[in-house]
Nucleic acid binder design. Sequence first.
DNA 1: ATACAATTCAAACGCCCGTTTGGTTCCTTC
DNA 2: GAAGGAACCAAACGGGCGTTTGAATTGTAT
Lengths: 206, 206
Amino acid sequence: MNSPHFSTKERILGAAEELFARNGFAGASLRELTSTAKVNLAAVNYHFGSKDNLVNEVFRRRLDELSAQRLEALQQVLSRPSHTLEDILAAFIHPALLLSLDKSGGSTFVRVLARAYAEHNERLRKFLSENYGHVLKEFANAFGAQLPHLDKEELYWRIDIIAGALTYAMADFGVIKRRASMSEKIHRERAAEHLIRFAAAGLRAE
Amino acid sequence: MNSPHFSTKERILGAAEELFARNGFAGASLRELTSTAKVNLAAVNYHFGSKDNLVNEVFRRRLDELSAQRLEALQQVLSRPSHTLEDILAAFIHPALLLSLDKSGGSTFVRVLARAYAEHNERLRKFLSENYGHVLKEFANAFGAQLPHLDKEELYWRIDIIAGALTYAMADFGVIKRRASMSEKIHRERAAEHLIRFAAAGLRAE
DNA sequence: ATACAATTCAAACGCCCGTTTGGTTCCTTC
DNA sequence: GAAGGAACCAAACGGGCGTTTGAATTGTAT
């Protein structure tokens, strides 16, 4: 990673993703970051304006594609004459699974995403809501069509819980180390299956 | 909170819990912390030795009681002649639910716990594993007795996922704000019910 | 080759960090 | 009420932080 044929901006984004995942946003310093990326200390402020905005761009790089894949999968599901709650859930969850299995930083990014949840950072929340809130809205509409009896506020809240559980499951948290013989891919796929079943039951509850 | 009749150590622990939840461990400075607790800047190092150790003590204060409650509930469940997977899960989850509903900082602490998961901090992991790993082990044994066919490594891993999902659900994460009319208590209790069903299905899978 | 913009760079800015120090105050215990 | 240890305090330590500056370098049109 971060080979010389990557541009300065790309090297910074790569190093940022790695260090944000490892040390958090506050815990990752621009000095360590620029040293890892093999760029000058001032390069972050030159290319991204500020550290805060660099955080935004780290998210934008991955979430643009993730959102597009989710929406495309959703369109495909909705175009089918009879689709289930599980189909919609798969359209939401599988793109995240694919991202977490990506070899060039995707799995690192999922951990950054989990950090963002834990941060409760208002500025970051606003950025994510403004730029990717419409994806949640589209899925909420799809779920709502399947669950016409469900209160809209409650529906949004449940979708939010699903997004959180998904993030957590993909981010490899926890105390126990996975043994080397079990492939990461298989484990994550299993987690995705469990999540779909859980979320479907949760949405249908009451 | 932090009234004058609380000792210096207690005021520091209270402020630490609050600021760690809001700003993270790296993001919370001792200057803001001691100012909030209305104690001298040097008090943290005097009473706790270092900021790192203060983090440990914040966890110890809550986890000692949580672990005791979990183990006691587990003993009660196991003493009953016929108990289910759901019973064991409830023994694990309900004490955490009670903690999250606690009025004097418990709900704040659950957010700190979620931070700890996101941190992936090796020092903190070691502390938690050394001091509270035996609780997970007891529950693993109980689950294992109910699921004799299940691989031990896989069992531990699944328990870990359950612990993570529980933490996430209790910590009030997510983008959507809960409307004021829905009580926090009821929502959390519902989340606990969903979790128990999910975890039981997950443990029984395969 | 020249002019001009984009990029890189070393150095410095002011600020806040965790920790330590040495003196003062408070509170026991005799 | 004197002695002595525990607790508190203001001040300072060295160091790392994000950001800015202005000059040097590189790239790109003419």
